[in-house]
Design a protein around this nucleic acid. Structure first.
Length: 797
DNA sequence: AGCACGCCGACT
DNA sequence: GTCGGCGTGCTC
């Protein structure tokens, strides 16, 4: 038999199948297996994507060396999916296969130097062992090693290592009969007290064995006595595999609650259920206002799929994978749930993933990459908050979880449910055209009115304090809530203290040396930080350009507002939540737990606080500046602004108390802000569609973004123009080719970026053409040029 | 991607 | 002569 293998070498030239002879000892090789194969002089990991009887290859096939896992990690479905994705998203098949698996399954490679003669073995450099070449840095040693290699006294061996380790525990089994143990007990010396205790325990608990180490420890039994019995073959140790279970911390406080659905929810659920039963690959767009009970519809649909003997996959944005969310699902489906998100350790992710692969979990809940969960027999896929930009991976492989979900839905003939209060325009337009079926939830499940939203016009308002960040209206409202012991959420879409340093004498703005961005001041760490590449330097007290002391720090960030609030409201307890305060693992949850427990009055944060949080005591939500996202040079700035404001407004008044929302803005008449005030998604959709139509933007056009990067700005520009010419020659009206222009941030990490935007309605040859351009890029790489192609880019300037 | 081969200039 | 720098081509 011959195995078709995709090899772990991410390069254009190796992005194809290599064939290997399967030796007879390897009988049970299946498609999707992870294998080790010889590749040139090296050994590399690879994935079997097909098995055949014959080969076209002219030379002699090499033997496949090893099958790594007992069970093939990839299902045939995932292998097929990887082929489809490689074609459509311009990335190597191996990169796609790797992202389908937990990161511990990436191979580690080592080069080891092994002595070949007795004489060499005794050399000091070997010390009787072989040498890991990665660890050799000493120049003299390197010279000596080269000598040895030359004289054939040593050879290099290539090793492929598997990082994936199962956690095990020691379990002790009995080996003899009860009478034997009793006999042995009698024969003990009188001073063997600990052994006597252990034997007494064995005799008393004979029926309950085996015990694991932790259990034995509880009975205060001596470890050395246990070991003695093991040595005497009276106990046997078995290493039993154990899952690192991340759910335990949530499962304690979960309670089951049965919720009755309202009429709209029931109608939506029935449609979805029908598709589950008919095995129908239909996509539903569940458009439901905040608080309309989408989650309950999801849970009952999942439950229905399980009853029909099918499995279910649910994606949620990383940020809303809160303990609240997980415990809800867990309370419903218990041990059958597997959770995949970035908060897990690598080992936990691997274990959760294996539970899915082995069919032990029937419901998978996870963030973007969970769309590749090796779940079989899928009967339902759900994507919650489907408009979230985080479902698109912004680096290679640039897949969109929604597209992958559609593919899998078709593969399994299972319905896909896209849910949101503010659907992406893309999805909403597809529902309009009948590609998706629209299901609407227009009523709040708890009958509560939507929170009252007030817009504060910053152009004509009085500010509290000396800074121009907080209006008196907002501060008064905060005071009022504080007096009633209620809580407040404040949103400010920028972290740090001030967003740039400006010299009033020479006009100099302090910028990142690697990127084309101004540095942001962070007062707490006394640093100026680049939010793109992380570059930092101390806060200057003189202008680095002209040495003037007349420097000012402009713009507002979370740190500055925190300071202002403390001045205006002495004694107020503020929790700040942004990338800076949540970098440590678990700190996100810590902050939210504190706030939930009422240990703070105000939660002040960036957009990470806008979504999914549910705190009943929050009665005021304030948006400090609604305009931050509005004038980004991006066609979907309005959509993002509307989305953010609507979502954050939904955080107020979630329980008994009614909520209030205050939005500060310099653009009170902008339709995105006015319609967010009314929470009127449908009108926003209609309005924004007209804007998109006039601007030839999605969803009226498909887009493809080609970026050319180089350390040399002129080379990047030159190549970008060359690509544009190729495109113009081959594409036809009404396709629009824009650019090349420097990217919005034209320099990132010392690379200059030029981009070309292709907007098209129908261009059947485009895919092929782009692949050709990519091939061309391969040649150009020698001159330090990189070309990236992004279909459905997340942002376009 | 790595690795080898081959060609070239530089140097003990 | 031999070392090492880089351009080129190959990996079943």
């Amino acid at each position: 038999m011959i195995a078709q293998v995709i090899v772990d070498v991410a390069a254009k030239q190796t992005d194809r199948i290599f064939e290997y002879q399967v030796p007879e000892q390897i009988a049970d090789l299946t498609t999707g297996s992870r294998v080790v194969v010889p590749f040139g002089r090296r050994k590399v990991q690879g994935f079997v994507v097909g098995l055949t009887k014959t080969s076209q290859y002219q030379g002699k096939l090499k033997d496949l060396l090893l099958v790594v896992d007992e069970q093939a990690p990839l299902t045939p479905e995932l292998v097929e999916l990887s082929a489809y994705l490689a074609k459509t998203i311009f990335s190597y098949r191996i990169s796609i296969l790797q992202t389908m698996l937990p990161s511990v399954m990436r191979a580690k490679y080592r080069k080891i130097l092994i002595p070949t003669t007795k004489q060499a073995e005794e050399l000091q450099i070997f010390k009787g062992k072989s040498i890991d070449l990665a660890k050799v840095t000493d120049l003299e040693e390197i010279a000596q090693i080269n000598q040895l290699l030359k004289k054939d006294m040593a050879k290099i061996e290539y090793a492929v290592e598997n990082k994936a380790k199962e956690k095990t525990k020691k379990v002790y089994y009995l080996t003899s009969s009860l009478t034997d143990y009793k006999k042995f007990q009698q024969s003990l010396r009188s001073n063997a007290v600990k052994q006597a205790e252990l034997l007494q325990f064995i005799v008393e608990h004979f029926e309950q064995f085996p015990f694991d180490y932790a259990q034995l420890k509880k009975y205060n039994l001596s470890f050395s006595a246990i070991n003695t019995l093991v040595k005497k073959d009276l106990l046997k140790i078995k290493e039993i595999e154990q899952y690192r279970n991340p759910l335990t911390e949530f499962s304690k406080n979960s309670k089951r609650k049965i919720v009755t659905l309202n009429q709209e929810q029931t109608a939506a659920l029935q449609k979805i259920n029908k598709s589950i039963e008919k095995s129908e690959a239909k996509t539903y767009l569940l458009e439901g206002i905040t608080g309309s009970g989408k989650t309950e519809v999801y849970l009952q649909a999942i439950s229905n799929a399980l009853q029909k003997g099918k499995n279910a996959l649910m994606l949620v944005p990383e940020i809303s994978l809160t303990p609240q969310m997980v415990s809800q699902v867990n309370a419903r489906f218990g041990k059958e749930v597997a959770v995949l998100h970035s908060g897990l350790s690598e080992g936990e992710k691997y274990d959760e993933w294996r539970r899915i692969r082995r069919g032990e979990a029937r419901v998978v809940v996870g963030a973007r990459s969970a769309i590749f969960a090796p779940l079989t027999n899928i009967g339902l896929i759900i994507i919650d908050e489907e408009h979230e930009a985080s479902y698109k991976q912004e680096d290679t492989p640039r897949y969109h979880a929604r597209n992958v979900a559609i593919w899998r839905s078709q593969f399994h003939n299972a319905p896909l449910v896209l849910g949101s209060a503010t659907p992406s325009l893309d999805s909403r337009a597809r529902a309009q055209k009948g590609v998706y079926e629209l299901l609407r939830l227009t009523k709040r499940a708890n009958q509560k009115a939507l929170p009252k939203v007030k817009i504060i016009d910053l152009k004509s308002v009085e500010f509290a304090g000396s800074q121009f960040d907080l209006s008196t209206n907002l501060v008064e409202a905060i005071k009022e809530k504080l007096m009633r012991n209620e809580q407040i959420i404040l949103l400010l879409n920028r972290r740090g203290f001030a967003s740039f340093m400006l010299c009033r004498d020479c006009g100099f703005v302090l910028q990142c040396p690697n990127c084309d961005l101004s540095l942001t001041m962070h007062k707490d760490t006394n640093q100026m930080i680049c939010h793109y590449c992380g570059f930092h330097q101390p806060i200057p007290n003189r202008c680095p350009n002209c040495q003037s002391s007349k420097i000012r720090f402009l713009g507002t960030g979370t740190q500055k507002v925190e300071e202002e609030l403390s001045e205006l409201l002495p004694g107020v307890r503020i929790l700040r939540m942004d990338v800076d305060t949540t970098r440590r693992k678990g700190s996100y949850k810590e902050i939210l737990d504190k706030f939930g427990a009422g240990e703070a009055d105000i939660l002040l944060g960036t957009q990470m606080i806008a979504k999914g949080l549910d705190f009943p005591n929050v009665t005021l939500v304030g948006v400090i500046n609604a305009d931050t996202a509005l004038y980004l040079p991006d066609y979907n700035a309005s959509e993002k602004t509307f989305e953010l404001l609507t979502q954050v407004a939904g955080r107020a008044g979630r329980a008994e108390k009614s909520g209030q929302v205050l939005i500060q803005t310099y653009n009170p008449d902008h339709y995105a802000i006015k319609l967010a005030q009314k929470q009127d998604y449908e009108t926003f959709y209609q309005t924004e569609m007209k804007v998109r139509y006039q601007g030839n933007y999605p969803p009226f056009f498909f887009t493809n973004l080609i970026s050319v990067a180089s350390k040399n700005e002129q080379n990047a520009a030159k190549e970008a123009f060359a690509i544009k010419r190729i495109l113009m020659r081959n594409l036809h009206a009404p396709t629009i080719v824009l650019g090349p222009t420097p990217s919005a941030i034209s320099k990132i990490k010392n690379q200059y970026y030029y981009q070309i935007l292709v907007k098209y309605k129908r261009e059947p040859k485009l895919n092929e053409l782009l692949h050709q351009i990519q091939d061309l890029a391969q040649e150009k790489q020698k001159y330090g040029l990189n070309i990236y192609i992004d279909t459905q880019p997340g942002r376009i300037s």
